[in-house]
Design a protein around this nucleic acid. Structure first.
Ligand SMILES: [Zn+2]
Ligand SMILES: [Zn+2]
Ligand SMILES: [Zn+2]
Ligand SMILES: [Zn+2]
Lengths: 159, 159
DNA sequence: ATCTCATATGATAATAATTATCATATGGAA
DNA sequence: TTCCATATGATAATTATTATCATATGAGAT
């Protein structure tokens, strides 16, 4: 139902950590696995909750630090959102995002059309573009159904 | 040098506020004008600072409330960023963003090619797309120059 | 123009999100 | 194994944002 995003193999993950000068620890592996298992771009808090069962003692500040380490090593990245706590992404393949303006749900989306889009060669002001990301904003299936039932749904305060 | 983004006329701004059931006050006008004068997608804190001169008594929590009101009324919006404090945008015209991964600078960019992009008609999962936004990520002129001088610039912690 | 009252502001406190500090533990090189 | 630079766990501090509440004010009705 909820397909996990393509994650790195444990060996490859370890290799990237070491390549970035980040030591491989059980906690880092656990945080990475928790992230890789969640396709909905969880917050740090959500990752911490998910880890409660197997790592009841892992403190939230440590999860924050590890998230930063994993990002530095390129195993995960922070994904753009309209305020609120940072949202994380362990999906290693190039993809775009569908963002629900009502509930904040964010799911991955891979489109040949959009993903093949190339950067304009000339950008203003000497800006040197390296990549781009696209957010498609609208209503997810659930909120879309609600909207149909009750009329328009207003924009939520925070995503 | 730093062109202010297209802002609403005072009359139009007032009209939209009243239409949304938001009273027109001197403070709300001041916050809107401060935002409209800043093309770099300031944080709430930055707007507050900018207002210090003419509104030394306006407290930060009030600026937060007013920003929320202006967003509800559609005078401004929150713009997507990779964590950190929310960034605001008073530019009323359809546009995209150039984001510097080194310093977090975010500038507007209007491209006929990208802005004319139309949403794919079929999105997965019953998601109903309404709009999209594109972030072009790279290095701004300043950081680009630094990179040329010293070699690669690493990704900054927060944008 | 004055009255009225629902709503905004200003002052302040509280909460949420994130980062810092530091003593102890441990990965991994020698 | 020994060693040491770095990670964790515990905790405090800081930053970002929201809540509360007494007073002030916008704007509709007299
Ligand atoms: Zn939704
Ligand atoms: Zn994603
Ligand atoms: Zn820059
Ligand atoms: Zn903008």
């Amino acid at each position: 139902m909820e397909g996990s995003p393509p994650l790195l193999s444990p060996a490859e993950a370890d290799r990237r950590l070491r390549a970035a000068g980040v030591r491989v620890t059980a906690q880092r592996r656990a945080v990475y696995e928790a992230l890789a298992a969640d396709p909905l771009h969880p917050t740090v808090e959500a990752v911490h909750s998910r880890l409660k069962k197997n790592w009841p003692s892992l403190p939230l500040p440590t999860v924050y630090r590890i998230v930063e380490d994993l990002a530095v090593a390129g195993l995960i990245r922070r994904v753009a959102s309209d305020g609120g706590p940072q949202r994380l992404d362990a999906n290693a393949e190039r993809h775009q995002h569908l963002v629900c303006r009502a509930c904040g749900r964010m799911e991955d989306w891979t489109s040949a059309g959009l993903s093949g889009l190339s950067l304009p060669r000339s950008l203003p002001d000497g800006f040197s573009g390296e990549t781009y990301d696209i957010r498609i904003v609208g209503l997810c299936r659930t909120c879309s159904a609600k909207a149909e039932a009750r009329g328009i749904i207003p924009k939520r305060r925070k995503s």
